[in-house]
Design a protein around this nucleic acid. Structure first.
Lengths: 117, 117
DNA sequence: TAACATATGTGCACTAAGCATCTATGTCAA
DNA sequence: TTGACATAGATGCTTAGTGCACATATGTTA
């Protein structure tokens, strides 16, 4: 399970961002697009194609579960919810992110000490 | 110049690690291999092929400069030194890493508040 | 002289990103 | 009533970067 997190995955943190957003309740791709930027890991908006691919891959891995929702206005939505396994993976991600933050701050400190800036 | 740093580059931070190590003085690939793990961004050792490719690409970009050193024991080494441009890029990296650490800690805090753990 | 450590590289398969594009559906205004 | 627009989901293609195995060369030492 811990092989699912951490590098070599890039530092956009799409997966934990999606899982985190789903902690607040079920949602669908198009809606998630507009919220996962809040965490500060994306420059602009996430490319739309990206999030759908992530969601489907995460469903294959059992981290989220989806069902179609044709209610409401507009076209049908594929609505996702986080699973117990998703919660575990998110927890592991948070641990990794904490360690990563510590490494980053250590690096920054080391640099400032050397350059006196 | 700021396009050279940040995502989509992965979070192994090879480039800033190499530049940082070269702040302490000129060095060569094989030696750098054994030191850049100290910063905490690599699981085990960096794959040897990786570092040589990075060094040559960084030389193309003008961040480091090399010359052959046949002195001393063992085979000749290609010894690298950081350039002024390399120093600027490292400085930009450090700024990026500081912001990244802040985002990470923000994410972690948000998670802990939600889950109470 | 064969094994080993040092030192630098190349080749290939795989993954993920980035971007453009495509499909479909519902809404609303001219 | 049809054409524009917003919503929603998905695919195709190119490129970048990784990971791993392997190749090459030189000096040291048993």
């Amino acid at each position: 399970m811990p092989e699912k997190i951490g590098p070599g995955k890039p530092d956009r943190y799409m997966q934990p961002s999606i899982l985190m957003a789903l902690l607040d309740g079920r949602s669908h791709g198009y809606e998630l697009l507009q919220h996962i930027g809040e965490y500060g890991f994306l420059k602009g908006d996430a490319p739309p194609g990206m999030i759908y691919r992530h969601l489907r891959q995460m469903e294959e891995e059992g981290l989220v579960a989806s069902q179609w929702d044709a209610e409401g206005s507009g076209p049908a939505k594929r609505v996702y919810a986080i699973t117990d396994e998703g919660r575990e993976v998110l927890d592991a991600w948070v641990g990794y992110m904490e360690r990563q933050a510590a490494s980053l701050l250590g690096f920054v400190t080391r640099y400032r000490e050397r350059t006196g800036g």
